[in-house]
Design a binder for these strands. Structure first.
Lengths: 116, 116
DNA sequence: CTTGAATGATACGGTTCCGAAACAAGCGTT
DNA sequence: AACGCTTGTTTCGGAACCGTATCATTCAAG
Protein backbone atom coordinates (compact mmCIF):
# COMPACT_ATOMS: atom_id res chain seq x y z
CA UNK A 1 0.00 0.00 0.00
CA UNK A 2 1.28 3.44 -0.94
CA UNK A 3 3.99 4.93 -3.07
CA UNK A 4 7.49 5.17 -1.66
CA UNK A 5 9.36 8.41 -2.24
CA UNK A 6 12.69 9.70 -0.95
CA UNK A 7 12.87 13.24 0.36
CA UNK A 8 14.83 14.25 -2.69
CA UNK A 9 12.31 12.70 -5.04
CA UNK A 10 9.33 14.18 -3.24
CA UNK A 11 10.68 17.72 -3.36
CA UNK A 12 11.97 17.42 -6.90
CA UNK A 13 8.56 16.21 -8.02
CA UNK A 14 6.91 19.16 -6.32
CA UNK A 15 9.33 21.57 -7.94
CA UNK A 16 8.96 20.13 -11.41
CA UNK A 17 5.19 20.12 -11.37
CA UNK A 18 5.02 23.63 -9.97
CA UNK A 19 7.49 24.84 -12.56
CA UNK A 20 5.42 23.24 -15.29
CA UNK A 21 2.25 24.88 -13.97
CA UNK A 22 3.88 28.29 -13.76
CA UNK A 23 5.23 27.91 -17.24
CA UNK A 24 1.81 27.10 -18.63
CA UNK A 25 -0.78 29.60 -19.75
CA UNK A 26 -3.34 27.94 -17.52
CA UNK A 27 -4.69 30.11 -14.71
CA UNK A 28 -2.49 30.06 -11.63
CA UNK A 29 -4.50 28.58 -8.79
CA UNK A 30 -3.68 29.24 -5.18
CA UNK A 31 -3.17 26.33 -2.82
CA UNK A 32 -6.68 26.83 -1.51
CA UNK A 33 -8.21 26.92 -4.95
CA UNK A 34 -6.30 23.81 -5.92
CA UNK A 35 -7.50 22.00 -2.84
CA UNK A 36 -11.09 23.00 -3.58
CA UNK A 37 -10.93 22.05 -7.23
CA UNK A 38 -9.43 18.65 -6.58
CA UNK A 39 -11.86 17.93 -3.78
CA UNK A 40 -14.76 18.66 -6.12
CA UNK A 41 -13.33 16.40 -8.77
CA UNK A 42 -12.07 13.56 -6.59
CA UNK A 43 -14.45 13.33 -3.67
CA UNK A 44 -18.04 12.12 -4.07
CA UNK A 45 -20.71 14.81 -4.37
CA UNK A 46 -22.64 16.70 -3.22
CA UNK A 47 -20.26 19.58 -2.48
CA UNK A 48 -21.56 22.58 -0.58
CA UNK A 49 -19.85 25.78 0.46
CA UNK A 50 -20.10 24.78 4.08
CA UNK A 51 -18.80 21.28 3.46
CA UNK A 52 -15.80 22.56 1.52
CA UNK A 53 -15.07 25.14 4.20
CA UNK A 54 -15.10 22.42 6.83
CA UNK A 55 -12.89 20.08 4.80
CA UNK A 56 -10.32 22.81 4.22
CA UNK A 57 -10.55 24.29 7.68
CA UNK A 58 -11.30 27.80 6.39
CA UNK A 59 -14.20 30.23 6.64
CA UNK A 60 -17.11 30.31 4.24
CA UNK A 61 -16.17 33.57 2.51
CA UNK A 62 -12.93 31.94 1.45
CA UNK A 63 -14.90 29.31 -0.40
CA UNK A 64 -17.35 31.80 -1.87
CA UNK A 65 -14.54 33.94 -3.21
CA UNK A 66 -12.63 30.96 -4.58
CA UNK A 67 -15.78 29.75 -6.34
CA UNK A 68 -16.29 33.25 -7.77
CA UNK A 69 -12.82 33.22 -9.28
CA UNK A 70 -12.84 29.64 -10.47
CA UNK A 71 -16.37 30.07 -11.77
CA UNK A 72 -15.24 32.99 -13.90
CA UNK A 73 -12.62 30.65 -15.32
CA UNK A 74 -15.36 28.05 -15.95
CA UNK A 75 -13.58 25.56 -13.74
CA UNK A 76 -16.61 24.96 -11.50
CA UNK A 77 -20.28 25.92 -11.50
CA UNK A 78 -22.85 26.68 -8.80
CA UNK A 79 -26.45 25.56 -8.60
CA UNK A 80 -29.11 26.05 -5.95
CA UNK A 81 -30.16 22.86 -4.26
CA UNK A 82 -33.87 22.60 -5.10
CA UNK A 83 -34.44 20.25 -2.20
CA UNK A 84 -33.06 22.76 0.30
CA UNK A 85 -32.72 26.12 -1.31
CA UNK A 86 -30.29 27.36 1.30
CA UNK A 87 -27.65 25.08 -0.12
CA UNK A 88 -25.47 25.75 -3.10
CA UNK A 89 -24.22 22.69 -4.91
CA UNK A 90 -20.84 23.02 -6.54
CA UNK A 91 -20.47 20.99 -9.70
CA UNK A 92 -17.88 20.09 -12.24
CA UNK A 93 -17.53 21.62 -15.68
CA UNK A 94 -15.99 20.42 -18.90
CA UNK A 95 -13.18 22.96 -18.61
CA UNK A 96 -12.54 21.98 -15.02
CA UNK A 97 -12.36 18.31 -15.92
CA UNK A 98 -9.87 19.10 -18.65
CA UNK A 99 -7.79 21.16 -16.25
CA UNK A 100 -7.68 18.39 -13.67
CA UNK A 101 -6.95 15.74 -16.27
CA UNK A 102 -4.07 17.77 -17.67
CA UNK A 103 -2.68 18.33 -14.18
CA UNK A 104 -2.74 14.59 -13.59
CA UNK A 105 -0.81 14.04 -16.80
CA UNK A 106 1.85 16.53 -15.73
CA UNK A 107 2.27 14.90 -12.32
CA UNK A 108 2.57 11.46 -13.89
CA UNK A 109 5.10 12.70 -16.43
CA UNK A 110 7.26 14.46 -13.86
CA UNK A 111 7.12 11.47 -11.53
CA UNK A 112 8.24 9.21 -14.33
CA UNK A 113 11.27 11.43 -14.94
CA UNK A 114 12.44 11.36 -11.34
CA UNK A 115 15.95 9.97 -10.82
CA UNK A 116 16.29 7.05 -8.52
CA UNK B 1 14.13 5.24 -13.74
CA UNK B 2 11.22 7.25 -12.39
CA UNK B 3 8.21 6.72 -10.19
CA UNK B 4 5.09 5.19 -11.68
CA UNK B 5 1.77 6.78 -10.75
CA UNK B 6 -1.76 6.20 -11.98
CA UNK B 7 -3.92 9.22 -12.80
CA UNK B 8 -5.97 8.56 -9.73
CA UNK B 9 -2.92 8.33 -7.51
CA UNK B 10 -1.31 11.44 -8.96
CA UNK B 11 -4.36 13.61 -8.42
CA UNK B 12 -5.14 12.17 -5.02
CA UNK B 13 -1.58 12.88 -3.94
CA UNK B 14 -1.88 16.46 -5.14
CA UNK B 15 -5.16 16.90 -3.31
CA UNK B 16 -3.93 15.44 -0.05
CA UNK B 17 -0.76 17.51 0.06
CA UNK B 18 -2.62 20.70 -0.83
CA UNK B 19 -5.23 19.99 1.80
CA UNK B 20 -2.50 19.43 4.36
CA UNK B 21 -0.81 22.70 3.40
CA UNK B 22 -4.06 24.65 3.57
CA UNK B 23 -4.84 23.14 6.92
CA UNK B 24 -1.48 24.14 8.32
CA UNK B 25 -0.65 27.47 9.88
CA UNK B 26 2.30 27.79 7.55
CA UNK B 27 2.13 30.71 5.11
CA UNK B 28 0.19 29.87 1.96
CA UNK B 29 2.58 30.11 -0.95
CA UNK B 30 1.40 30.70 -4.48
CA UNK B 31 2.46 28.34 -7.23
CA UNK B 32 5.08 30.82 -8.29
CA UNK B 33 6.43 31.28 -4.82
CA UNK B 34 6.59 27.54 -4.35
CA UNK B 35 8.47 27.12 -7.62
CA UNK B 36 10.94 29.81 -6.58
CA UNK B 37 11.46 28.44 -3.11
CA UNK B 38 12.06 24.89 -4.28
CA UNK B 39 14.37 26.01 -7.04
CA UNK B 40 16.48 27.90 -4.51
CA UNK B 41 16.62 24.89 -2.24
CA UNK B 42 17.07 22.16 -4.84
CA UNK B 43 19.06 23.67 -7.67
CA UNK B 44 22.74 24.59 -7.28
CA UNK B 45 23.51 28.23 -6.49
CA UNK B 46 24.05 31.01 -7.28
CA UNK B 47 20.45 32.17 -7.73
CA UNK B 48 19.83 35.61 -9.18
CA UNK B 49 16.60 37.43 -9.86
CA UNK B 50 17.23 37.23 -13.56
CA UNK B 51 18.06 33.55 -13.45
CA UNK B 52 14.93 32.71 -11.50
CA UNK B 53 12.80 34.80 -13.84
CA UNK B 54 14.22 32.93 -16.81
CA UNK B 55 13.74 29.52 -15.22
CA UNK B 56 10.11 30.27 -14.37
CA UNK B 57 9.37 32.11 -17.59
CA UNK B 58 8.10 35.22 -15.79
CA UNK B 59 9.16 38.84 -15.60
CA UNK B 60 11.65 40.16 -13.07
CA UNK B 61 9.15 42.12 -10.98
CA UNK B 62 7.36 38.87 -10.29
CA UNK B 63 10.53 37.53 -8.71
CA UNK B 64 11.22 40.73 -6.79
CA UNK B 65 7.74 40.73 -5.30
CA UNK B 66 7.85 37.04 -4.44
CA UNK B 67 11.21 37.56 -2.72
CA UNK B 68 9.75 40.51 -0.83
CA UNK B 69 6.95 38.39 0.53
CA UNK B 70 8.98 35.28 1.22
CA UNK B 71 11.73 37.41 2.72
CA UNK B 72 9.27 38.89 5.16
CA UNK B 73 8.42 35.35 6.15
CA UNK B 74 12.18 34.63 6.53
CA UNK B 75 11.99 31.88 3.93
CA UNK B 76 14.74 33.37 1.77
CA UNK B 77 17.30 36.16 2.06
CA UNK B 78 18.89 38.56 -0.38
CA UNK B 79 22.50 39.67 -0.58
CA UNK B 80 24.32 41.91 -3.02
CA UNK B 81 26.93 40.11 -5.06
CA UNK B 82 30.17 41.82 -4.06
CA UNK B 83 31.87 40.62 -7.23
CA UNK B 84 29.25 42.30 -9.44
CA UNK B 85 27.14 44.63 -7.38
CA UNK B 86 24.35 44.65 -9.95
CA UNK B 87 23.47 41.11 -9.00
CA UNK B 88 21.38 40.06 -6.06
CA UNK B 89 22.10 36.60 -4.73
CA UNK B 90 19.17 34.77 -3.24
CA UNK B 91 20.10 32.47 -0.39
CA UNK B 92 18.51 29.97 1.89
CA UNK B 93 17.51 30.57 5.47
CA UNK B 94 17.01 28.30 8.44
CA UNK B 95 13.26 28.88 8.36
CA UNK B 96 13.15 28.20 4.65
CA UNK B 97 15.04 24.96 5.05
CA UNK B 98 12.61 23.88 7.75
CA UNK B 99 9.65 24.77 5.55
CA UNK B 100 11.01 22.76 2.64
CA UNK B 101 11.94 19.84 4.83
CA UNK B 102 8.48 19.74 6.36
CA UNK B 103 6.90 19.91 2.92
CA UNK B 104 8.98 16.94 1.84
CA UNK B 105 7.79 14.98 4.85
CA UNK B 106 4.17 15.75 4.03
CA UNK B 107 4.57 14.63 0.42
CA UNK B 108 6.25 11.41 1.50
CA UNK B 109 3.57 10.70 4.06
CA UNK B 110 0.70 11.33 1.67
CA UNK B 111 2.35 9.27 -1.04
CA UNK B 112 2.76 6.40 1.38
CA UNK B 113 -0.96 6.51 2.16
CA UNK B 114 -2.04 6.29 -1.47
CA UNK B 115 -4.23 3.30 -2.32
CA UNK B 116 -2.98 1.02 -5.00
C1' DC C 1 -47.34 32.79 11.80
C1' DT C 2 -43.37 33.76 14.13
C1' DT C 3 -39.09 32.65 15.79
C1' DG C 4 -34.52 30.74 15.62
C1' DA C 5 -31.09 28.23 13.27
C1' DA C 6 -28.62 27.37 9.09
C1' DT C 7 -26.61 28.60 4.70
C1' DG C 8 -24.33 31.58 1.43
C1' DA C 9 -23.27 36.05 -0.03
C1' DT C 10 -21.72 40.68 0.77
C1' DA C 11 -19.27 44.90 2.94
C1' DC C 12 -15.25 46.57 4.97
C1' DG C 13 -10.33 47.94 5.47
C1' DG C 14 -6.04 46.24 4.50
C1' DT C 15 -2.57 43.40 2.04
C1' DT C 16 -0.74 41.14 -1.95
C1' DC C 17 -0.35 40.44 -6.68
C1' DC C 18 -0.50 41.40 -11.68
C1' DG C 19 1.78 43.24 -16.30
C1' DA C 20 3.89 47.15 -18.37
C1' DA C 21 6.62 50.88 -18.01
C1' DA C 22 9.91 53.82 -15.98
C1' DC C 23 13.69 54.14 -12.80
C1' DA C 24 18.22 53.59 -10.27
C1' DA C 25 22.58 51.61 -9.80
C1' DG C 26 26.68 49.20 -11.43
C1' DC C 27 29.66 47.54 -15.05
C1' DG C 28 32.69 47.84 -19.08
C1' DT C 29 34.45 50.11 -22.93
C1' DT C 30 36.06 53.98 -25.08
C1' DA D 1 34.30 61.21 -17.96
C1' DA D 2 30.61 59.48 -20.98
C1' DC D 3 28.21 56.13 -23.30
C1' DG D 4 25.51 51.91 -23.69
C1' DC D 5 24.23 47.64 -21.49
C1' DT D 6 22.78 44.70 -17.66
C1' DT D 7 20.52 44.05 -13.33
C1' DG D 8 17.17 44.68 -9.99
C1' DT D 9 13.62 47.75 -7.99
C1' DT D 10 9.79 50.83 -8.08
C1' DT D 11 5.54 52.88 -9.78
C1' DC D 12 0.95 52.77 -11.82
C1' DG D 13 -3.93 51.40 -12.10
C1' DG D 14 -6.51 47.42 -11.55
C1' DA D 15 -7.61 42.96 -9.69
C1' DA D 16 -7.71 39.22 -6.17
C1' DC D 17 -7.47 37.81 -1.58
C1' DC D 18 -7.56 37.96 3.55
C1' DG D 19 -10.43 37.76 8.24
C1' DT D 20 -14.24 39.65 10.60
C1' DA D 21 -18.68 41.08 10.75
C1' DT D 22 -23.10 41.68 8.81
C1' DC D 23 -26.93 40.68 5.60
C1' DA D 24 -30.49 37.93 3.01
C1' DT D 25 -32.80 33.84 2.13
C1' DT D 26 -34.57 29.55 3.48
C1' DC D 27 -36.00 25.97 6.43
C1' DA D 28 -38.18 23.85 10.39
C1' DA D 29 -40.16 23.74 14.79
C1' DG D 30 -43.17 25.77 18.17
Amino acid sequence: MGVSLSASQALRLWQQVNLAEVHDDAPDLSERQMAILLTIYLDPPPHTVRGLAAKLGVTKPVITRALDTMGSHKLVSRHRDEADRRNVLVKRTVDGALYVERLGDVIIAKAAELPL
